[in-house]
């Protein structure tokens, strides 16, 4: 089964122009989540949407060279471990699990740091899981049979 790759110039150019702004918007949503609507879940999905757009227009093969499957799977684990790791660090600093007060000398600053790290973990996990979902759906039925 041969995958169809779009040759229309409109798709090519529009996706090329949109790719970077989507990622920048995702990062804005990720790090502005404390002050406005947004956070790890939304940012992860928006960043994943940029990569999914790329693999939809330029074909799955090019998409997989942009985000290699192996690295994507490692990053999935890194996100979850980052979240759980923040909890462990606060355990080692004589706090309770996921108690961010002890992360910094000032409790309020510790909370800020903890929330940013945890949201980053959530964002990485969601983004990579969504990319992995798309890639496995797109590649189904191509190799075997």
């Amino acid at each position: 089964m041969q995958e169809k790759i779009s040759t229309s110039p409109i798709f090519n150019i529009v996706s090329r122009i949109l790719f970077a702004p989507i990622i920048i918007f995702g990062l804005y949503v990720q790090f502005h989540g404390d002050y406005g609507p947004g956070g790890g879940f939304q940012a992860g999905v928006i960043i994943a949407a940029a990569f999914i757009l790329y693999s939809m227009i330029f074909g799955l093969k090019n998409g997989e060279t942009l985000v290699p499957v192996k690295i994507n799977r490692y990053l999935m684990c890194v996100g979850v471990l980052l979240y759980a790791g923040v909890g462990l660090v606060s355990l080692f600093l004589n706090g309770k699990y996921l108690d961010y007060n002890v992360l910094s000398s000032d409790p309020s600053g510790g909370q800020h740091l903890g929330i940013i790290l945890v949201e980053l973990g959530v964002g990485i996990t969601v983004a990579t899981v969504m990319i992995a979902l798309y890639h496995s759906f797109a590649s189904f039925g191509d190799s075997n049979d």
Partner: peptide, 13 residues
Amino acid sequence: FHIPNVVTNILAS
């Protein structure tokens, strides 16, 4: 917390 978005605050902390 000094974090205006209460939803993020509850979600993460």
